[in-house]
């Protein structure tokens, strides 16, 4: 059962060290070890149970993808549907469309994030020794959006893109251009969402890369300086090459998650506008919509399983590649 039960149990069992010293040595050692194992197990139990309940049980639930689910009969009582749910998912053309959007948008975001975060990290590195205060201000500003929820971000975006009151349309009409109904034009959204995703997430990567740059042994730069290498050359010859392994590993790890879209970005920031689905409907929003507005549990579960399975294969593959380069950085 959940956390606190186990905590009480643990607290109630007498601390072993009170007993052991008075016992013969061999017995006490075995007993102590047993006791220690038991204590350790009980300590881990609450979290293990929670993982079981919220991660493992739902894994069993993937059978729903093969069921003709009726709530009254429960998960296991419902009739089997074979591959019917998958057949429909793939035959309607939706599967291809949402897979493309998911992979394409994630690829855009990964690339943009890498480009912007590396640039900012290198720039910050150039100014940080002379103006540490300013560098700190820059870094804080860039990191700030990281703490906002996607709901809050959707307000920010609305303030810019609202058709009648948005800043952008007022600027457009101000210079004599036609206003644009942003939330109806799907063509703009790959760009908009990339900008928003980078704005919100890049601070994280800037800090990651800056930390890696700081960790580079200063002797390299000293040596380069003595050889007369300028700042630009130091960046190209030392900093970037030193970062390459890290970049590759980060890329591999990002790519391994390419099948999972950030639901908040695609749901909240687009305000779930149906007109934007051609470019913004991703697997995660599709699964959510199939469940909540269609009530099609079977097909929704099928789409979810498809995502989980391909995602799993990608992670294992990426991990294998990372392990080949640097076992330290591998997940497992």
């Amino acid at each position: 059962m959940p956390a606190p039960t186990a905590v009480t149990e643990v607290a109630e069992s007498p601390p072993p060290e009170l007993v052991t010293p008075h016992r013969p040595k061999t017995v006490s050692r075995r007993q102590a070890r047993l006791r220690s194992t038991l204590t350790l197990f009980l300590m881990g139990l609450p979290a293990l149970v929670l993982l079981f309940v919220f991660s493992y049980v739902p894994m069993v639930g993937v059978v729903l993808a093969f069921k003709d689910y009726r709530p009254a009969r429960g998960v296991f009582g419902s009739a089997w549907a074979g591959l019917e749910n998958f057949k429909f998912l793939f035959s309607s053309g939706d599967a291809w469309h949402i897979t493309f959007n998911t992979v394409f948008m994630n690829a855009l975001i990964i690339a943009a994030n890498l480009l912007v975060s590396l640039t900012l990290a290198l720039l910050l590195n150039e100014v940080r020794d002379r103006s540490p205060r300013l560098a700190k201000v820059y870094q804080s500003a860039v990191f700030l959006p990281f703490v906002f929820s996607w709901v809050v971000v959707s307000y920010f975006v609305l303030a810019f893109l609202d058709a009648d009151h948005g800043l952008v349309n007022h600027a457009l009409t101000g210079v004599g251009m036609q206003p644009i109904d942003w939330y109806s034009r799907s063509g703009f959204w790959p760009l908009i969402l990339t900008i928003v995703a980078v704005w919100k997430g890049v601070g994280f990567w800037v800090i990651a890369y800056l930390a890696a740059i700081i960790a580079i042994n200063p002797e390299y730069y000293e040596a380069a300086s003595m050889d007369g290498a300028g700042r630009w050359q130091q960046m190209r010859r030392i900093t970037l090459p030193m970062l390459v392994p890290l970049i590759i590993i980060n890329l591999l790890l990002s790519v391994s998650h390419i099948f999972h879209a950030d639901f908040g970005l695609f749901f909240q920031v687009t305000r779930n506008s149906t007109l934007l689905y051609p470019t913004t409907d991703v697997i995660d929003t599709y699964v959510y919509r199939s469940l909540t507005s269609l009530g099609d549990v079977g097909m929704s579960a099928a789409a979810g399983l498809y995502q989980a399975f391909v995602g799993f294969v990608l992670v294992v593959l990426a991990n294998w590649l990372v392990r080949r380069r640097d076992p330290q950085k591998a997940l497992f």
């Binding site: 309607s92 149906t274 007109l275 269609l294 097909m299």
Partner: peptide, 24 residues
Amino acid sequence: LRTQVSTVAATIKQYQQQISIGLV
């Protein structure tokens, strides 16, 4: 017709209103 019913209803939900109110 369970699958047809949910997919047709979904398609209508996605397209019909935007056409009916002149968005496209």
